[in-house]
């Protein structure tokens, strides 16, 4: 399942997409994130349970700004959460 956290506004699409089928809840991305944007949540999408990563509630409506430090307008982009994930469970829409 692909969970889209974020929003769209006049300036563009700002979503962090977590693929729950790939995320094993290892927590590496949480450690890698300098701004405390991510957290581990219970997988409440099925009765099987388990844990998965999500964008914290308080960052969902301002994700463009929360993640701005990781996204230089020029030069090489090294997004810590994306790089830290071995299973490629995290993608960004912008």
């Amino acid at each position: 399942m692909k969970a889209h956290y974020g929003y769209k506004d006049g300036s563009g699409d700002y979503f962090i997409v977590i693929d729950s089928d790939k995320c094993d809840g290892c927590g590496e991305c949480i450690n890698a994130c300098p701004n405390g944007v991510l957290e581990l949540i219970l997988d409440e999408f099925d009765i099987e349970g388990g844990t998965m990563v999500a964008v914290k509630d308080e960052h969902r409506k301002k994700i463009k700004y929360s993640c701005a430090p990781c996204k230089p307008v020029s030069g090489e982009r090294k997004i810590p959460c994306v790089l830290s994930c071995r299973t490629n469970a995290i993608t960004h829409s912008w």
Binding site: K2, H4, Y7, K61
Partner: peptide
């Protein structure tokens, strides 16, 4: 079963 979802409560 959910394949993909998006929630907008910003605006």
């Amino acid at each position: 079963k959910v394949l993909s979802f998006l929630m907008n409560d910003k605006c």
